[in-house]
């Protein structure tokens, strides 16, 4: 037997996990009670349904952001890509009158742009932050250019049905978001792609050395993000009844914040989809609750910023408490 003791911090890890994921859940409940007290209409089935639907694109993008952050490939571009994909759908729909062709064009645009990002990261060796930041600029720019900064009306019964409640204020869009979450959680936990997502984020060189074609998996991951952006775009267009070049502005920040306040490490290599779900719910409740209090956008931003910072500090403190102070 080896003399090296292996009985260190098994339990604290679990405690930390518990605190990291359920601590925020507690905060979420407090927040919901607070909003209900301020505005009783908050805790009604109708409003909760609206809240979930408003934020369905956020839920979908947050799933992609979880993969991106765990694998250390931060993506700032999804909201801009969403707008561009929406514009592609709108233009094709306008020209052909076919929703199907429009959807194909929209998805193709989203996947193509994300793959373009991935190729620059993998082949060009450029930092993901820079690549996706540039994309944040140019994809939005293209979306605005193609439309002359005007929205394109997209009305189609099939698309409208996506955000029309079918029962209990629940629309297909909400179910879609839920499905995306479950699929994302499954892929992350049970498949090769998921395993390599963690491995790349933890130590990319070692992963490559172990014979994992990391470049290929990054391409797959970004393509998957493209599909998610496409889905979020469908919900957005359906909700607005139009393809707007300024759609989803700031969504990428909400998505990234959801992943992080949920308790996933920004430094990559660890995390899970359940944490992202709680984080995204927290942001959704904030967005909806603050919005219903009749405040100005500016005031909403202040409270939202403060709540996010509190949640982040809470995460940091709880982690420190359990891990013990490190010099």
């Amino acid at each position: 037997m080896t003399t090296l003791s292996s009985a260190t911090n098994v339990r604290p890890a679990r405690w930390r996990e518990w605190l990291a994921s359920y601590g925020l859940l507690g905060a979420l409940f407090v927040l919901m009670i607070l909003f209900t007290a301020l505005n009783p209409r908050f805790f009604t089935l109708a409003n909760l349904g609206t809240m979930l639907e408003q934020n369905a694109p956020l839920f979908i993008i947050a799933v992609g952001a979880t993969f991106a952050i765990i694998s250390q490939n931060i993506d700032l571009s999804p909201a801009s890509v969403l707008a561009l994909a929406g514009v592609a759908l709108g233009l094709v729909f306008q020209a052909t009158g076919s929703l199907l062709l429009g959807i194909i064009a929209g998805f193709a645009a989203a996947i193509a742009v994300e793959l373009f990002n991935a190729v620059l990261i993998v082949r060009g060796g450029i930092n993901p932050l820079i690549v996706t930041l540039a994309c944040w600029i140019w994809a939005r720019g293209l979306a605005v250019s193609f439309t002359g900064a005007n929205s394109i009306l997209v009305r189609d019964p099939a698309l409208d049905a996506l955000t029309r409640p079918i029962a209990l204020e629940i629309s297909p869009a909400i179910l879609l978001a839920l499905l995306v979450f479950m699929a994302g959680g499954f892929i992350l936990a049970r498949t090769r792609l998921g395993r390599y997502t963690y491995a790349m984020g933890s130590d990319e060189r070692a992963t490559l050395q172990a014979g994992v074609p990391t470049g290929k998996y990054k391409l797959i991951m970004f393509a998957m993000f493209g599909v998610l952006v496409g889905l979020a775009m469908l919900v957005t267009v359906s909700r607005l009844g139009a393809a707007a070049p300024d759609a989803a502005y700031g969504l990428e920040l909400d998505a990234i914040v959801s992943v992080i306040i949920g308790g996933n490490a920004f430094s990559g290599g660890e995390g899970n989809m359940r944490r992202t779900l709680i984080g995204a719910l927290f942001i959704a409740v904030l967005n909806n609750g603050l919005g219903n209090l009749g405040m100005l956008d500016a005031q909403i931003a202040v409270y939202k910023g403060a709540a996010i910072l509190l949640a982040l500090l809470f995460g940091v403190v709880s982690t420190r408490l359990v891990k013990g102070k490190r010099a």
Partner: peptide, 27 residues
């Protein structure tokens, strides 16, 4: 001090500082 990653921390102040200024300016 708090050990929050710079992207996230400054993202928070990006939202918060503009919001605070807008509130002061009454939008």
């Amino acid at each position: 001090g708090a050990g929050i990653s710079p992207v996230i921390a400054t993202l928070g102040t990006l939202i918060g500082a503009r919001g605070l200024a807008l509130v002061l300016m009454d939008n």
